[in-house]
Every structure is written in structure tokens, then in C-alpha cells.
């Protein structure tokens, strides 16, 4: 039986997304009430039977490492199922072309040859989708291609399977060229290599800026998107368990079309919003069309609309904050408004 290992690159940030640039890598950005972006590639790999996964960590790696730990929540951290934290060579790199740097592979070459895998499945960490990778690997194996890239329509999904032998060749041939990405090497220098294409059908959304972030969270309010992401037959999206108590919805609450995580106390109005763990919406407070990360505190009489806030933001009593659908108002971590 052939063996596939996984590699997730998480050592990149986005210029446009000030949520992440200062504080944490994109991979560690909270999402969907109780998740972080990294939960999706990690769960997809675990659910596809990939037992060895390497994670190239970002420079600001505290929040990511704290969240992922030994990978136990995803079934890693066991004798035969391991998650490896791999150092990156370059931090804060940007843009799609440099997501999969050969330098990062060279720095961690031992990881790719330790178990003598036939294939390596490589993905980024800022795209939300739930996918069974097994048909992709099967197609790649049957096709005889050296690399198979995943597309949805014309869009490359920052995900591909590559033969380990090709990785080793690339390392030999290009080791003294700086800053080369694997996908650009293939398209620019090896146009004749056998490159396959795998079609993904289903929901996906990449997160590069605040608008993407807002849209993707709001997409979860659509039943079909929610079902595709969280109730897929390929398995559950796992995350770090935090033992929060269930949410209490007070007699005064008015909630419509919203997602609310555990440990919240909702006493006011919430519409078309996503509210993360341990947040408080006080009586007579109003939250509409908004995404509140964990420990948000919307005090009595405050009103937010088209509002996205990072962790531990307080909107004080009587304050009204409003953005627009195209450009939601963003509050940084720990702010009091």
C-alpha cells in the first residue's frame, strides 16, 4: 500500500488582513464561533487517514501551538499518528506564489524521508473547506502524474499531491536558488512534467482580508454551507476542546438567524451574526450582521452593525458602531469602544 504524509504551511500572513498581521498567523485566526482556520486542513487530513502531518509554524507561533498542542483533538499525538511542528525558513511571506517555499522543504528534508512516503499532500491554511483527500490521492496514484493540483473551476485551491521522489529531485536541482515556490518551479521550469488536475466540488472560501473573513463567517448561516462544512460524510471538523458550559439565553433575548458558541450569555438582540465562545450581549444591546470573536462584551444599550471584533473587545453602554457589508467596522484585540 502506498503511503501519503501531509504538510500544512502556516508561516504566512496577509497584508490586507490586520486581524492577523500583528497578532497571529492566518492559520490561527478564530472562525465560525469555536474554530480556528487551521482546524480545517488538520481535520481534513486526519479524516482522510493521513497519519503523519507536518505543520510549518509561523514566527508568531504562540497562539497556533497553544491551539494545536500535540494534535490530540484531531487524533494525532499517538504512537502511530503524529503531528510534527516544523520550523519555517521565512516568516511573514505574502501572496499565493510563495506559500509553498522549497526552502521550507529543504530545512525539513528529514521529515519528508523519515517514513519513506510515496506522496506528500501539501496544503495552505487559510481556506475553509471540508474535503476527503482519499479520492484525490487515488486519482493521483492511478494517473501516474508526478503532481496533482486541486482546482475548483479555475481557482487553484492551494492544495496538491506530489511524489516524494519529485520533491527530492527539486531539492537537488534548485537548492541554490532562493525563494522559489514549488508550484512556480513546476509551472516555470518544468512545464513538461506530468501535472494532473483534480476537480473539487463543494463549498470553499479563502480568507485573505477582512471582507473574506466576514463573508465566510456569514456563509455559515446558510444551511447548505453549514451542512457541507460540518456535517459532511468525510468526518467532523475537530477543534481544541475548552470545557465551556452551554450558552444561556435569557428571557429578554431576541435571536434570529445566528450562530452562537458555548459559554455565552445572551440577554439582548442578536441577528444575522456569529458569536464566539464566552461572549456577553447584555439586555437592550443589539448585535446585527456582526462577527464577535470570543469574550466579546456588548454592554447594555450598545448597538453594533456590520461589526467584526477580535477577542476580548468591549463595546460600552450606549455606544453605536456600524460598518457596511463591503467594509465591516473592525475592532482590534482587547479594545474598549
Amino acid at each position: 500500500m502506498s503511503k501519503t504524509i501531509g504538510l500544512i504551511t502556516a508561516n504566512y500572513v496577509s497584508d490586507e488582513f490586520n486581524i492577523s498581521a500583528e497578532e497571529r498567523a492566518l492559520a490561527a485566526v478564530p472562525f465560525g464561533g469555536r474554530y480556528r482556520l487551521i482546524d480545517f486542513p488538520l481535520s481534513n487530513m486526519a479524516n482522510s487517514g493521513i497519519n503523519t502531518v507536518g505543520l510549518i509554524v509561523p514566527f508568531n507561533n504562540r497562539s497556533l501551538i497553544e491551539h494545536v498542542g500535540t494534535g490530540k483533538a484531531w487524533g494525532f499525538g499517538r504512537k502511530t499518528h503524529s503531528l510534527f511542528m516544523l520550523p519555517g525558513t521565512v516568516y511573514g511571506k505574502r501572496g499565493d506564489k510563495s506559500k509553498f517555499l522549497l526552502k521550507d522543504i529543504i530545512a525539513n528534508l528529514r521529515f519528508f524521508n523519515y517514513d519513506k512516503p510515496d506522496y506528500v499532500l501539501i496544503t495552505g491554511s487559510n481556506r475553509i473547506y471540508t474535503m476527503d483527500y482519499r479520492p484525490l490521492i487515488a486519482q493521483h496514484e492511478a494517473s501516474g502524474c508526478k503532481i496533482t493540483k486541486v482546482f475548483k473551476g479555475d481557482k487553484f485551491m492551494d492544495c496538491f499531491v506530489i511524489n516524494t521522489s519529485l520533491i527530492n529531485d527539486l531539492v537537488k536541482w534548485f537548492s541554490n536558488v532562493d525563494f522559489l515556490g514549488i508550484t512556480s518551479i513546476i509551472s516555470e521550469y518544468l512545464p513538461n512534467e506530468n501535472v494532473g488536475r483534480y476537480e473539487y466540488v463543494g463549498y470553499e472560501h479563502s480568507i485573505n482580508n477582512l471582507k473574506d473573513y466576514y463573508e465566510t463567517n456569514c456563509d455559515l448561516l446558510k444551511e447548505e454551507v453549514n451542512a457541507m462544512l460540518f456535517h459532511s460524510p468525510c468526518g467532523t471538523i475537530a477543534t481544541n476542546i475548552q470545557d465551556r458550559c452551554p450558552t444561556f439565553i435569557a428571557p429578554t433575548a431576541e435571536i434570529k438567524n445566528s450562530i452562537i458558541a458555548a459559554g455565552c450569555l445572551i440577554e439582548g438582540t442578536v441577528e444575522n451574526s456569529v458569536i464566539f465562545r464566552s461572549s456577553h450581549v447584555a439586555e437592550n444591546a443589539s448585535v446585527k450582521n456582526s462577527v464577535l470573536m470570543q469574550h466579546a462584551n456588548i454592554e447594555s444599550g450598545a448597538a453594533v452593525n456590520y461589526f467584526v471584533c477580535d477577542k476580548r473587545v468591549t463595546v460600552t453602554s450606549g455606544v453605536a458602531v456600524s460598518g457596511s457589508k463591503e467594509s465591516p467596522y473592525f475592532a482590534k484585540k482587547g479594545m474598549t469602544i
Binding site: G33, N226, T236, T247, K256, N257, S258, I259, A261, F276
Partner: peptide, 10 residues
Amino acid sequence: NFYTAQYIGA
């Protein structure tokens, strides 16, 4: 078990 966050309908 792993559950997603709760959904309250429109």
C-alpha cells in the same frame, strides 16, 4: 463530542 456552534433560525 465535537459539535459545531448552535444555530438559531431566522
